[in-house]
Design a protein around this nucleic acid. Structure first.
Lengths: 302, 302
DNA sequence: CAGAGGTATTCCATATAGGAAATTCGTAAT
DNA sequence: ATTACGAATTTCCTATATGGAATACCTCTG
C-alpha cells in the first residue's frame, strides 16, 4: 500500500510533466498551464529530482525527451484522464443507471400512490432494480444503517425519530382519515356519532396497536379511548376482518376508496376532528447529494 | 484536454481521500498519512469543496461515506496505483525487454570485437531486436537525432564531433596499427623502413581518404605524405586489392590478424611510432539513464 | 561575434499547508 | 437531564514552498 509514500510526492508535478511531454518546451508548457516560464522550469527540476532522470535534454528548439520520459508519456496520459473523471461532477442518466434501490413503504402508499410512479421509474430507468419492503419498526434503523434507501412514514408513527441526525425528510401528501365498516352494518341505520363509533369494536393495524396513531392520540386528548378487539398486520387483513364482522377500522381515505371497490365495505367520516395524516419520505444524508437518489426521490410527489 | 484545469486542482487531496475512504476516520487517516488530525480534517474540507459533495457524514465512530464517495472509491484506488507506478524507478529485466536497438559500428569492430558480445546479448535478452549498421559519415548525425542508439568510432575519425553537446562517450579499447602487404611481396626481402613504406602505393579505406586518419596526421607532423593510389569502401575490399597488387594498407592489428587467416597477406609493423588507435562508443544523452540502454552498453567492454 | 530563442537561476513576496490547542458535535452513560 | 467522552472541526499561528520578475546562461544561426 503506497499511500504514505504517495502522499509525500507532489502529484501536481505530473500534470506539469504531461504538459511538458505534450509541448516539449518549457515556455509553451508554461503557457498551457498559465504559469510563468520560471515556474515550469523549477517544476521540471523537481520532476527530475523526483523521477531520478533528466527527462528532457535541451536541443536547438525546445526539449527532447529521454527514453524514460517517453515511457512515462505512454502511462501518464490515461491516468490523468482517469483522475480528471474522478473529480468531475458525476452525471446521471436514468437510461444507463443500473443501481439497486431498496424502498420501505407503508402498505397504503405502496398500493395506492406508488404504483403509477413505479411504472414510470422502471420505464425511464430500465436497468435499475427496486426492492420494495413493507414498512416495519426497524425500517428507520435500516435507513440509518444504509440498508434502505427510502422510507415513507405516516407522520403519526414517526415516534420522534425524524430527529435522527443525518436523516432528511420531505413531506409527501396528506390524507384524511375515515372509518370503515362492512356493508349493511347496523350502525349505518343510526346517526353516526362519536359515541356510536366508540361503541364499536375496532381493528388495530400493524404498528398502530401501541396507541401511537393520530387517532388514539386525539382520543386520548379528549380523555377517551377505543376498544381494539382485533389486531392485524396489514390493511388487507383488516379489511377482510372488517368485511366479515361488525368491527370497524380507521383508514386513510386513499385506502378506503380502494377497499370499497375490492371489498364489501363502506366508508364513514371520522366522528371527531382529526388532523389529516401526512406521509413523510425519509432518506439518509449519505444519499442526499446522489444524483440517482435525487432522481428517484423526485418520483415521490408532494 | 483538461490539463489546464487539472493543474488548478490539488491532486494530493485525492491521496488523502483514498486514505479517508480506507480508514473511514479522520484520525486514523491522519496516522496513515503521518499528518496531524487537523491537517486531514482541513484536507477533507477542501475535498468537499472540490468534489461538491459532503463525501462523509459523521457517525458514532468515524465517518460513513456518501454514495458519491463510494463511487469515487471504486475508481480512485487503481488510478493511484498507476500513478505510483509512474514515479517508481523503472526496472529492467533483459528477459522481458522487447526493445529495438540500432547500432553503427566500424567494419573492424563489427567483425572482430562485437561478434561474441552479440551472441551473449541475444541469449540473455531473447526478445530484443538489434539492427547493425555500417558506420558512415552521417552516423553521428543520426545519433544526435535519436535514430541510432549507439555508435562506435575510431578516435582518429571523430573529427572533433565528440564535443557535440548531449553526447556521451566511452573509451572502448586500443589497437596498434600495422601495415599489410600481400604474401611474397618484394618489400619483404628488403629492410622495412619508413622510406620503404612510403615508396609503396597505399590503399585508402572508407572515410579515411581525406587524410584525417591518425596515420596521415602523424606523417603530416613529420612533413611527410603517403601516396593513396586506390580508395575503397571497406576493409574486405582493401584486403582483396592488397592481395592482388603491390599496394599496402594500414590496418588495425585486430583486422590484420583476421585478414592473415582469410587472405594471402602478411603483416608488417608500422615503420614510425604511431599512437595506437582507440575506439570510442557514443550515445545520446537521452538514453544515458535508460536501464535497457545501460545494459546494452555494458556489453561494449574496454 | 552578435543576436535570437530558449532554459536555468536568483531573489523575493505570498499563499498555503500543517501543527497545537480550543471548540463543537454526536453519542453513550450516569 | 446532565455529564462525559470520542471524534471532527475551527482558530490561530508559523514555516515552507510555490510562483513571478529579472537576470544569467546556453546553443544554434546568420
Amino acid at each position: 500500500m503506497p499511500i504514505q509514500e504517495l502522499s509525500r510526492i507532489n502529484l501536481n508535478l505530473l500534470v506539469c510533466l504531461q504538459a511538458l511531454l505534450e509541448e516539449r518546451s518549457v515556455t509553451r508548457a508554461s503557457e498551457r498551464l498559465n504559469l510563468s516560464q520560471s515556474a515550469v522550469s523549477k517544476s521540471l527540476a523537481r520532476l527530475r529530482e523526483l523521477i531520478g532522470d533528466p527527462l528532457f535534454t535541451r536541443a536547438a528548439h525546445g526539449l527532447i525527451p529521454t527514453s524514460r520520459a517517453l515511457s512515462i508519456q505512454e502511462q501518464l496520459k490515461p491516468v490523468l484522464d482517469e483522475l480528471w473523471k474522478v473529480v468531475q461532477p458525476q452525471v446521471f442518466d436514468p437510461l444507463y443507471c443500473d443501481r439497486h434501490f431498496t424502498i420501505a413503504l407503508p402498505e397504503t402508499a405502496n398500493h395506492l400512490k406508488f404504483q403509477n410512479s413505479l411504472a414510470d421509474i422502471l420505464k425511464s430507468a430500465p436497468h435499475i432494480k427496486i426492492k420494495l419492503m413493507h414498512l416495519n419498526l426497524k425500517s428507520l434503523e435500516e435507513l440509518a444503517a444504509g440498508k434502505v434507501d427510502l422510507v415513507a412514514l405516516p407522520d403519526d408513527l414517526d415516534c420522534g425519530q425524524h430527529r435522527i441526525s443525518g436523516i432528511h425528510r420531505k413531506r409527501l401528501y396528506k390524507d384524511k382519515l375515515v372509518c370503515v365498516v362492512r356493508n349493511n352494518h347496523p350502525c349505518l341505520e343510526q346517526p353516526w356519532t362519536l359515541e356510536a363509533c366508540l361503541a364499536l369494536g375496532h381493528i388495530g393495524i400493524g404498528a398502530v396497536t401501541d396507541r401511537v396513531s393520530i387517532t388514539d392520540q386525539t382520543l386520548a386528548k379528549l380523555g377517551l379511548d377505543r376498544d381494539i378487539v382485533v389486531a392485524v398486520g396489514d390493511f388487507h387483513s383488516a379489511t377482510q376482518v372488517c368485511e366479515g364482522t361488525d368491527l370497524m377500522f380507521v383508514s386513510s381515505g386513499n385506502w378506503a376508496d380502494y377497499a370499497e371497490e375490492l371489498y364489501a365495505v363502506t366508508t364513514l367520516p371520522m366522528p371527531i376532528t382529526v388532523e389529516p395524516i401526512a406521509y413523510d419520505l425519509y432518506w439518509h444524508e449519505m444519499n442526499h447529494q446522489d444524483l440517482a437518489h435525487q432522481w428517484l426521490r423526485s418520483y415521490f410527489k408532494v
